[in-house]
Computed example of a mutant assay.
Amino acid sequence: MQKNVGGFDRTWRLVGGALLAIIGMAALVGVVSIGTIVPALLVVLGVVFFATGVLQKCVLNRLVGLDTYRGEEAETDRMDEVSADRPS
């Protein structure tokens, strides 16, 4: 599977996933009282979001056809443009 998560999407997944997992764990150990099912779901969702941000691959994005990953091609194109603007 090709990478399809990048940019703001990746940042949101890394930060949001970590926060969801932390809040879920805090609720599971008793720091916050919101039951047991909701915290367990928060932990699972947090881990999934964080993992998709780290791996930069998301099955749901692939099914929907969403691709926010720019990849090495975009970086190579940018470098070519910069070198073309410089005088030799």
Rank of each mutant, 00 (worst) to 15 (best):
N4V: 11
N4C: 10
V5K: 00
G6Q: 09
G7A: 11
F8H: 10
F8L: 15
F8Q: 13
D9I: 15
R10T: 04
R10V: 11
T11G: 14
T11L: 13
R13C: 05
R13T: 04
R13S: 04
R13F: 04
L14M: 06
V15P: 05
V15M: 14
G16R: 07
G16C: 05
A18M: 14
A18V: 00
A18Q: 02
L20H: 08
A21V: 01
A21C: 11
I22Y: 03
I22G: 12
I23D: 00
G24R: 01
G24E: 05
M25S: 14
M25K: 06
A26D: 09
A27L: 04
A27S: 09
L28D: 02
V32T: 14
V32D: 03
V32Q: 10
S33R: 09
S33N: 13
G35C: 07
G35S: 13
T36W: 13
T36G: 10
T36E: 09
I37A: 14
I37E: 03
A40Y: 05
A40L: 15
A40Q: 10
A40S: 14
L41M: 15
L41N: 08
L41Q: 13
L42N: 00
V43F: 05
V43M: 10
V43T: 10
V43H: 03
G46K: 01
V47Q: 08
V47G: 02
V48M: 08
V48T: 12
V48I: 15
V48F: 02
F49H: 08
F49C: 11
F49G: 04
A51R: 06
A51F: 12
T52M: 06
G53N: 08
L55A: 12
L55V: 14
L55T: 15
L55K: 12
L55M: 13
Q56G: 06
K57V: 13
K57R: 14
C58E: 03
C58N: 08
V59P: 00
L60I: 15
